[in-house]
Design a protein around this nucleic acid. Structure first.
Length: 428
DNA sequence: TCTGGGGTCCTAGGACCC
DNA sequence: TCTGGGGTCCTAGGACCC
């Protein structure tokens, strides 16, 4: 029997998370901004109706926000991550196989469920809503790509109550014809532009292209998308995601940085964050990259980027070792007089820490055990008392006072992950 | 004043080896 | 008077996703 895929996607996820804890905003327009309060990354249905564009720079929307009474939130990833875990935990109980695809989406295997996929999907939608407060839509299809398309249609057609099964459509080709080709999962804007030159505007036209044409212009991944649109499943559910190959931490600054010292501090801070995530996944890094990016300057010269790589003597998750390497790399690419907008670090060459401890050919440095104990202690203290309780001096003295800190002026409380910010329920 | 952050995969091309 | 064939590894760049 062929697989029945479902895609469960949270509606306007970040905006919905904010509204769970601010019920007075139900039915009101709200938006969530990216880091640095830069651009709009989530909108409630009412904000969409008010004409707030996705991805719009926040400073260009101030008038519209004021005129239409839009409530604005800085992004609060601690809250969204926790709400996501709650949604996924409910979904885990409701399907035999599940792949968490992103913070707000999961693919489910609904093959052979009693009562049929559609009824089960409606039960899932209702349960997630009741237990978490987050509204979801469910798309069902014989391939992941078609389940994605069905989900998109479920959101656009109020009549279907948030659930749509591609296989049950009376006229599936009409749906394919209504979808711009660039909106198909795996095609994207650039390929969409190229396809338009060949007269391919929608998903139906793409589906009927010759396979060799697609292979030539879009590699094997394009062929997978083509076959999936035709109903042949090529992209399976991934139950246990493979370990990450890289870990990245980067931020834009609140304002331009022009000297090495604050840049160095920021890089140390990003390393500390990335290294903590590395240890949480029981991995070590065999290398790292540091990059910086400048503003476009007044004369119209475009922004420029510089990148430098470094590697420890042996793979490690020791924060101080990685910071020293990253700062030395940074010093090599820093140029006085530049106005820097952003910096980032990427940890590369990741491998399991356990593999290393068993290696006889490549003995650990003498102080590796001591380093590991120090990091374990640091992680335990920060887990108990908050992420920035124990820090390296290189990260700068204060958590909030750095000249490079990002802007975040409208963040909601960390309702679910910080004791000091629990919501208060008032009787009466 | 001036648009986020964190990932993956595929391919082409060069270095190097036999 | 003019440079094989085949393989591996690495990197850069381009595309995609959320």
């Amino acid at each position: 029997m062929s697989t029945v895929f479902a895609l469960v996607d949270c509606n306007n996820f970040y905006a919905s998370c904010e509204r769970v804890f601010a019920p007075s905003l139900q039915g009101k327009p709200i938006v969530v901004l990216s880091n640095n309060d830069g651009c709009v990354i989530a909108r409630s249905a009412e904000a969409k109706a008010a004409g707030v564009p996705m991805g719009a720079p926040a400073f260009k929307c101030r008038d519209l926000f004021a005129r239409r009474g839009v409530t604005v939130f800085s992004s609060n990833y601690a809250l969204y991550g926790d709400m996501s875990a709650r949604v996924m935990s409910v979904l885990t109980r409701m399907a035999p196989r599940l792949e968490v695809y992103s913070i707000d989406e999961a693919f489910l295997d609904l093959t052979g469920l009693p009562g049929g996929a559609d009824a089960h999907a409606r039960h899932i939608k209702e349960t997630v809503g009741r237990w978490t407060g987050i509204p979801v839509s469910v798309g069902i299809g014989p391939t992941k790509t078609l389940a994605k398309l069905a989900n998109r249609a479920a959101k656009k057609r109020p009549a279907c109550g948030g659930v749509l099964d591609f296989s049950a459509l009376p006229d599936p080709e009409a749906l394919l014809e209504s979808v711009p080709v660039a909106d198909v999962w795996g095609i994207g804007r650039r390929h969409g532009e190229k396809l338009a030159k060949y007269g391919v505007a929608n998903a139906l036209q793409f589906r009927d292209l010759p396979q060799v044409f697609v292979r030539r212009h879009m590699t094997v991944q394009g062929v997978h998308t083509l076959l999936e649109l035709r109903g042949f499943s090529c992209i399976d559910l991934e139950k246990a995601p493979p370990p990450p190959r890289t870990l990245m931490s980067s931020r834009s600054f609140g304002k331009a940085v022009t000297t090495l010292e604050p840049l160095s501090e920021a890089v140390a801070d990003y390393i500390a964050r990335a290294a903590a995530r590395l240890r949480a996944k029981r991995l070590v890094a065999g290398g790292l990259e540091v990059y910086v990016r400048t503003y476009a300057d007044a004369s119209g010269r475009p922004p420029s980027s510089d990148i430098a790589a470094a590697a420890p003597q042996s793979p490690t998750a020791h924060t101080a070792t990685l910071i020293a390497l990253a700062q030395a790399a940074l010093a090599g690419i820093f140029r006085p007089g530049q106005r820097y907008k952003k910096a980032g670090v990427i940890l590369t060459g990741l491998e399991p820490e356990s593999g290393r401890q068993l290696s006889l050919l490549d003995p650990e440095p003498a102080n590796a055990a001591r380093d590991a104990r120090l990091m374990a202690t640091l992680d335990a203290i920060n887990a108990k008392w908050g992420r920035d309780t124990l820090r390296c001096a290189a990260q700068g003295a204060s958590v909030t006072g750095q000249s490079w800190a990002m802007r975040q002026n409208m963040r909601s409380p960390r309702y679910t992950t910080d004791w000091a910010e629990l919501p208060v329920v008032t009787a009466g």
